[in-house]
Every structure is written in C-alpha cells, then in structure tokens.
Design a protein around this nucleic acid. Structure first.
Lengths: 240, 240
DNA sequence: GTCTATAGTCGGATAGAC
DNA sequence: GTCTATCCGACTATAGAC
C-alpha cells in the first residue's frame, strides 16, 4: 500500500524504537486527547522523546504527522478486522445461507467488535481521533472513511441485507446496521458519562462482559423478526 | 439557578442583540466545531461581531466563556426535555402502571429525543460540544453531567427499571438505557460517515422519519421480552 | 540523523482613550 | 460599555552546526 506518509523520510524497517513510529503513536494519543490544535509540537516531541525538529524531518510538519496517524489507524484496524470482514463477505454471498446462520455470523462479528474495542488499551485512542474527524472532517477523514469505514459498512450491509432479505443498498438495512454500531460506539465515545453513571472505574473484564451481554441480547431481539418499516404507516410484521 | 457565568458582568435582560448572548452562541458553534484550542478569541469575537476585549469584559477570559457555554447548554436542554422527564418520573412511580403503558411512555420519550436532536438546526451544536467534553473532560463536564445528564439518566433508569421489573440501580437496566441512547447518538456523532454512507446531504424530514422508524422498531423489539442476562452463562428468557 | 538556536507568526490578555 | 493598540508568551517551522 502506497501510504501517504511515505512521501517523507522512510526507514528500512519500522523498529520499536524508531522515532518515526514513536511520533505516530504519540500523535495518536495526543491528537485524540487534545485535538489537533490542543496537541502542540513540543508536547508531541516530548511525548515521543524525540527532538522537535524530527517532526518536520520525518513528516514535513505537524499536518504530515496528523495524516500519518490517520494512515496508521487504517492499517491497524484493517489488520485486526480485515479477516472478519472477509468472513462476512463470504457468508453474504454463500449459496443457501440460512437466516439463522447469517444472524450467527453477524453476532460473532459484533461480539468481536465489542471485545476488540473495549477489551484492550489501544483501540480507545483510535476512537477519539476518529470521532474528532467526524465532528470536524479534514483531509484525514477521507483516509479513514475510504481506508476502513466504507469496507466495514459494505461488509455489514451485505450480511444484514442477506439476513433481512433485502438488497445491500436498501436504506433500512443500512440504518439498522448503523443503529447497532451506535450501541457499541456509545460505550467508547461517552466513557466519562458511562463510567460516572455506572460507578465503574474502568472497563474491566466483568464490565466488558456485562456490556457484551446486553448488546448481544439486543442484537438477537432486533433480528428475531423483521417488519415492513415503510413510511406509509403500515405496522405489519413479517416473519422471514 | 445561580449560574456560574454570573460572576462577571450581568445584563438586566438577555436581549437578542446582547453581545453576551451572541458570544455564548458563537462559542457554542465554534468550540463545538473546532474545539477549545481550535477556536481562537479572534474567531469568536468576529463571529459574534463584538470587540475582542468583550470576551474578557463579560466572561473574564476564554475559559469563562467556555464554561458559560456549558451553562447555556444545560439551561437549553433542561428547558426542552425537563417536562418530558417529569412525565417519565411520574410514570415510574405510578401505582399499577402496566408494562405496556411503561413501554409506551418510553417510546414517546425516545421519539421526542430523536425529533429534538435531528429535527432542528440548533441541538446538533450541543452534541459536538458535549462529545468533546466526553473525550477529554474539563471543568465543564461536571456542569453538563450534573446539569442534565444525571437527571436524564435517572429518569430513564427509573422508567426502564419499572418496565423490566428491576430496581433503578440494576446494572442491566442502565446498560439497556445506554445502548438505546447509543442508537440515537450515533446519528449525531458520526454525521459525516452516516451521510456519506447513506448518500444523504442532510437530515431532511424524510431521512429523519427513516431513522425514527428503525430506532423505534428496535426499541419495541428490545422490550418485547426481557431475558435473565446474568453472567453465569444462563440464556433463559423470561416473559414478564 | 540529531540537535540548538532562532525566525516569524499568532495566540490571549490588558491598558487606557473615548 | 466599547474600542484601539500593544504586550508577552507560545506556537510552528527552519537554518545550520555537528
């Protein structure tokens, strides 16, 4: 993949103590925490324990580092969820896939997302960065959207369309998928409110299990029956 | 209410052309769009069409304006959702409230939230401000949380606890409420991704109706039956 | 590749006229 | 209350030694 950051100095290998990598990971942390303007080059250099001038040397400037962080997020996410999406795409096109099988694969996928996002310390940082780009999109948003959002949505749309017996471009399918992702997303995006409300200090294993349990249960309920949700006011329910 | 902003210059009335009010509304807009650091005092003054020195004069500085915006958001939200929360609290304590009645009131409440947040141009600005405070809480987060989040959560917990036949402090009740709010929240927090994915230019009336339809349907499905979601792995379903 | 020193810009706050 | 002018600190970027 011809990454954008390659326009500047590129090392042979990305070693653990590579100043380039340290800068990107510090950028992910600080841009996410404090926003682009809130994270100064001095903070970034100090956090990565590199010299101030290294930012310009490696990335051409603060903007370049910011875009490199976006590239980094895309690579990390695709590395982790890529195999799952392949599975989802394969299922969506499989001949004779039953509704139950489809739901089961969707459940596995959602469960994977929950564990991935809440279970480890890293991914919470991605979310802050991504959310800020959603609120006020810059050039980095295009990298994120085309890099992992579009493929992820497409895979989920295809699978859920299959479950609901609709086309992957069906609007209700898309809205249903987005709503489900919203249930997961809120636990990352509103950690302060969630923790304060629930009296949690952090997302420990038992808290993660409680979230997983409720979201998965909601998911199964939502797909147990699918209605005709047309805007003509019809409330007919059809069992597929 | 003894608002924090009252520590500085206070006008007799909050007129439409009041520079104080213009600054607060501009602050809401620009802090939400560009973050605290991203919105400079010069941008704020120009946006509100007041002199640069007015910020210090009225609010003691940029920080004071920021906190005043938080106070303003709390007042606006409470003015709009306050009556609904009263209704929810009343229902939660009503003698002989049936499960169906409880669900109906919950649906009305959620429907109100959806229309409120997606139907008008104003509230989307609150969300950006609030989300930024969630990602990186400052003193303003306490104002927001105590001002409207806690009361709102409490009211919803009480109602849903009643529907589920649990106490308002039950963890599953809380998680269920948060997940439902997540379904609504994602449409505000990820407008860029949602619009791009759905090919929407904005949240017009017909789009709003589509979102409402799916979220309300999910809501009814989730509460049609309530399972024992204990962590011992039991998958028993109990109809209440 | 790494570092220091510094240039040039822009930020928030303030003094003081009106 | 409103405005102009200005101070001072912090910021990003760069030149150039090593």
């Amino acid at each position: 993949m011809a990454s954008r950051v390659m326009r500047y100095r590129t090392p042979k290998r990305m070693a653990v103590d590579d100043p380039r990598k340290r800068l990107i990971e510090t950028g992910l942390d600080l841009f996410g925490k404090y926003s682009f303007d809130g994270a100064s080059t001095r903070m970034l250099a100090e956090g990565a324990q590199v010299n101030l001038a290294a930012i310009t040397y490696y990335f051409g400037g603060k903007d370049g580092l910011y875009l490199a962080v976006a590239d980094y997020i895309v690579e990390e996410i695709n590395g982790l969820v890529g195999p799952c999406l392949v599975k989802a795409r394969e299922a969506a096109e499989r001949e004779g896939l039953s509704r139950e099988q489809g739901i089961e694969i969707l459940c596995e996928l959602v469960e994977f997302f929950i564990t991935l996002l809440l279970g480890r310390p890293g991914p919470e940082k991605w979310l802050s960065f991504i959310v800020r780009e959603q609120l006020c999109p810059t050039e980095a948003f295009g990298i994120l959207y085309e890099g992992f959002m579009r493929p992820m949505y497409q895979a989920l749309f295809g699978l859920v369309a299959r479950i609901m017996g609709e086309g992957p471009e069906d609007q209700e399918v898309k809205l249903r998928v987005i709503a489900i992702l919203g249930q997961i997303q809120i636990f990352h995006i509103s950690p302060s409110a969630v923790k304060r409300t629930l009296g949690w200090e952090s997302y420990g294993p038992e808290n993660l299990e409680a979230v997983r349990c409720v979201v998965m249960d909601n998911l199964r309920r939502i797909f147990s029956i699918v209605p005709n949700c047309s805007s003509n006011g019809s409330d007919a329910w059809t069992v597929l």
